[in-house]
Amino acid sequence: MVQTNNLTFQYKKSKHVFSFPNISLEKQDNLLILGKSGIGKTTLLHLLAGLLKPSNGDVIIDKMNLSSLHDNSLDKFRGQNIGLVFQKNYAIQSLNLIDNLQTRLFLSKKPINKTLIDTLLMQLGLDSHKKSKINELSVGQLQRLNIALSVIHNPKVILADEPTSSLDDENCKIVIELLIKQAEQTNANLIVITHDNRIKSFFQNSITL
């Protein structure tokens, strides 16, 4: 459940004020947010994730108003309830694949359930790369690891920023289907922000900034 009310944001050194349409998602609702570069897509995503504080308005996730949270409690809330997927995929370089997932669970203070991890890795086709270092993975594998990292802790919301823009058509389809499937399995809302029109057809709800 994600809800925003009259959300506006202004960067410190800029006069431009971003104002965003209200969003209201029920359980299991997915949303595609389309828009050109520079229109504030990533800003909106960071506001939703609590990484930026809105100038005005509120973000409410699972009945929790992010404006009421500060510093450590916000970090904790984000870690436990939000999964983030980035454009170019990234994981902690010094840790191997399985350690990345365990670190993710450790930091969000969720129990480390090895069978759950194994099942997830099987579904994503990463089970043979558990001990691989991050720089040994291909782009596609990294993308799937990123999806794993964003859902492993059973988040309420999965926020994806241009998850497919650097992928070819085939991988684009695989990734978006995996994302939707994982969101479904964990009962999470999936919000994808993109300028990639190829994935339009996978979503019922979409807004354009």
Binding site: L51, G79, I92, T103, K109, L149
Partner: peptide, 13 residues
Amino acid sequence: FDFALLRTYGASN
């Protein structure tokens, strides 16, 4: 970026 990532995982400063 590692640190930022760890923060999104729920790590505190």
